Amino acid sequence: MSGAGIRKIRCVGAVVRDAAGRLLVVRRGREPGAGLWSVPGGKVEPGESDPVALARELREETGLVVAVGDHVGSVERPAPDGVFEIHDYRCVVTGGDLSPGDDADAASWVDLATFTTLNDRNALVEGLFAALREWGELPR
């Protein structure tokens, strides 16, 4: 998917779990992926580091304040004008109240059974389940 002349758009995603091991997911309110569930995240703006961008995206999309931790993996996905290069990080909630905002029209904590059901119903963004499984980051 990558190669010479293809515009790469750096993005970040958050793998956030609660005390029960459930995963934080948001339902996208806009394209790309409108109506599909994903981990929160988005584009890295010029001058931002990945942790700064991820903390900003989490506040905007979920109302939560997070501490950004270890990088867990990266994927590339097609974008209308290039390729989204997405870098996912573990995050821990340090404050705020869960409330969807910005381009997320819903936010929820999901366990493995619910996450699997979303995957089986094609309600997750493409490749999310497989990537999290490969990285050992599925919810409990």
Rank of each mutant, 00 (worst) to 15 (best):
A4P: 14
G82M: 03
V92G: 04
P40T: 12
G41C: 09
S2I: 07
S2W: 03
R90W: 06
S108W: 13
S99W: 15
G42H: 04
R77V: 06
E85C: 09
R90A: 05
L132N: 00
W37Y: 11
D111W: 06
S74V: 10
L118Q: 07
G101L: 12
D102L: 12
L64K: 05
F115N: 00
G63E: 15
T94H: 00
A123S: 15
G136F: 06
G13K: 00
E76C: 05
L124M: 09
G42W: 02
A131V: 04
L64P: 02
E31V: 12
P32G: 10
G33N: 11
G82F: 01
G42A: 10
A34V: 15
A53S: 11
G63Y: 13
I86E: 01
T114M: 13
G101S: 14
V83K: 03
N119A: 08
T116N: 10
T114D: 14
S99C: 15
G29M: 05
A123T: 10
V75Y: 01
L112H: 12
G42C: 08
E57Q: 14
L54T: 02
V39W: 04
G21L: 05
V68C: 01
V26H: 08
F115G: 00
H87C: 09
R133I: 05
V66M: 00
D102P: 09
A130P: 07
G127Y: 06
V125K: 06
D97H: 14
R28W: 14
V93Y: 02
P78K: 11
P100F: 13
R27T: 14
E137L: 07
R121S: 10
A79T: 01
S2H: 07
P32L: 12
D88E: 10
A67C: 02
L132T: 01
A55G: 06
V83L: 06
V68S: 00
L124E: 03
W109A: 04
P80H: 05
A130Y: 08
R90Y: 04
R27P: 10
E57C: 13
A130I: 08
E60C: 14
D50F: 07
A107I: 13
H87F: 08
D102V: 09
R77C: 07
V125H: 08
A4G: 15
D103H: 13
R30W: 12
R90V: 06
D105L: 11
I6P: 03
P139R: 02
E85I: 07
V39M: 03
I9M: 08
N122G: 13
G95Y: 04
